[in-house]
Design a protein around this nucleic acid. Structure first.
Length: 465
DNA sequence: CTAGGGTTAG
């Protein structure tokens, strides 16, 4: 019972935020809104630490809108009331639009930006290139890169690296290479990051030789390899069970006075774990400290996930205690390791306690945490708890996969909890999510056994949309 | 901007 409170209170908080936004919204965006009355509890409690840009009313409002259409109309509304937008306005809006994949609107705003001769920062375009990368729109990403100088923006090696990275991630290694080679013509100087990205590209294709060639090229052009360079290579070798070569690279970097960091050791530790040498890995963790490198979250993560994989979750929990003793604050990933393995072993209630614990420690669960937790409850057939997690999840603006939706609805129907099944279906409909006809048929079968009208209506409603 | 413990999607 106690566990449920923290989740439902977060629902309440969100509701308050919405109410607050509504209030703020309807008032006129002139100077009077900038300084709200002091007896308004919302504004005084919400903005204890106020960032400078939050003084700008448009940005304050924009920050609280989730819908892109709403964001756009807000933008135009401010403009009509005589508010003069400047770079912070444009860039925040563009970020928001790009994040929700509304690229037509992005272009539209960019046209205004160019028309008004607003000087743009490089980071804006880097963000855009990355967003196009996520949608695998390679050509659009290249296009942004080519056009950015026309926005009175200085292009540095950072944007080129961003583009090369997007190309590599989109499996366009040849294109990446040609931009890499074109750096000189753009009067940009390749740095270690550029090389590291290319090396990653070859390693992703399991082309060790290719990666080594780039590495040699790096040395020839006198670009110093960094820890990251070595970590990429060592990581690959450890993943592919070549610990011997990894160790010699490790020696190589020390000889070159490039200091290994916590990640380097984590990679080697993982290599050891993969070979079943957990104890050696743990020894290495103590050894690293001796070598002047403090163990961090990554290192504990390696050990904990290895224990988890082998079903020794309780030992992993012991490590959690060890971390706390050493004043290393566990983060989401560490908690997720526990939640993940607890759930897959059918220990969902325990995982749930872990989830509430992390919340109490001020560590916010993320999409993965909620997904694992919800799936975990579905797995053991505790659909009411699952529903509870779903609510918390929605309150923090995350969403389950449609497979999970199916599982949850089906379970609720079978348990005779038709009201809640309807609720979940409505959520599904609102999210405009859907799934194939197979799952629908199964749901209908479940329903037919129970046979009720209300849920049938909900079903057909979702089907029709 | 690059490496990394978990996971993760239309």
């Amino acid at each position: 019972m106690r566990d449920h409170r923290s989740l439902s209170s977060s629902v309440l908080i969100t509701k308050r935020c919405i109410a607050f936004r509504h209030h703020y919204h309807t008032s006129q965006p002139d100077k009077s809104t900038k300084k709200p009355k002091t007896n308004e509890p919302t504004t005084t409690t919400h903005k204890v630490t106020r960032k400078p840009w939050e003084e700008i009313p448009f940005l304050t409002d924009l920050k609280q809108t989730e819908d892109t259409e709403e964001a756009l109309s807000l933008f135009h509304h401010y403009q009509q009331t005589g508010f003069r937008h400047d770079y912070p306005s444009y860039s925040s809006l563009i970020y928001k639009l790009a994040k929700s994949r509304n690229f037509e609107a992005v272009d539209q705003i960019l046209r205004i930006v160019r028309y008004r001769n607003v000087r743009c920062r490089e980071s804006l375009f880097m963000g855009l290139i990355q967003h196009y990368g996520k949608t695998r729109s390679v050509d659009k990403a290249v296009d942004v890169f080519n056009r950015m100088t026309s926005f009175d923006c200085v292009r540095t090696i950072q944007s080129l690296n961003t583009l090369i990275n997007v190309l590599v991630d989109c499996n366009e290694l040849e294109k990446a290479r040609s931009f890499f080679d074109g750096a000189k013509d753009m009067r940009l100087r390749l740095n270690s990051v550029s090389f590291n990205i290319l090396i990653k590209g070859f390693l992703d294709k399991c082309d060790w030789e290719g990666a080594c060639k780039v590495f040699d090229e790096m040395l020839e052009t006198e670009v110093q390899p960094s820890v990251v360079t070595y970590n990429s290579l060592i990581g690959f070798l450890c993943r592919n069970d070549d610990l011997g070569k990894a160790k010699s690279l490790f020696e190589d970097m020390i000889q070159k006075r490039i200091r290994p960091n916590a990640v380097t050791f984590a990679l080697l530790m993982r290599g050891l774990c993969c070979k079943g040498e957990y104890n050696e890995a743990k020894k290495l963790m103590f050894d690293m400290e001796y070598r002047g490198c403090k163990p961090g979250l990554v290192n504990y993560g390696v050990l904990m996930s290895d224990l988890g994989k082998r079903g020794k979750i309780d030992e992993a929990k012991v490590l959690l205690g060890e971390m706390k003793k050493r004043r290393i604050k566990p983060d989401v990933v560490i908690y997720n390791i526990l939640v993940n393995h607890l759930c897959s072993e059918g220990r969902a209630p325990e995982a749930y306690r872990t989830l509430t614990e992390m919340q109490m420690k001020g560590c916010k669960p993320n999409a993965a945490t909620y997904r694992m937790m919800l799936d975990g409850f579905c797995r053991i057939g505790d659909f009411d708890s699952g529903l509870n997690v779903l609510n918390a999840m929605l309150a923090s603006r995350h969403s389950p996969t449609s497979a999970t939706f199916v599982c949850l609805v089906s379970g609720l129907i079978k348990g005779g909890n038709l009201d809640h099944a309807c609720f979940v279906l409505e959520v599904l409909g609102k999210k405009k999510l859907s799934f194939g006809s197979g799952p629908w048929r199964n749901l209908l079968c479940d329903l037919c056994i129970k046979d009720t009208g209300a849920c049938c209506e909900a079903l057909s409603e979702v089907i029709s949309t």
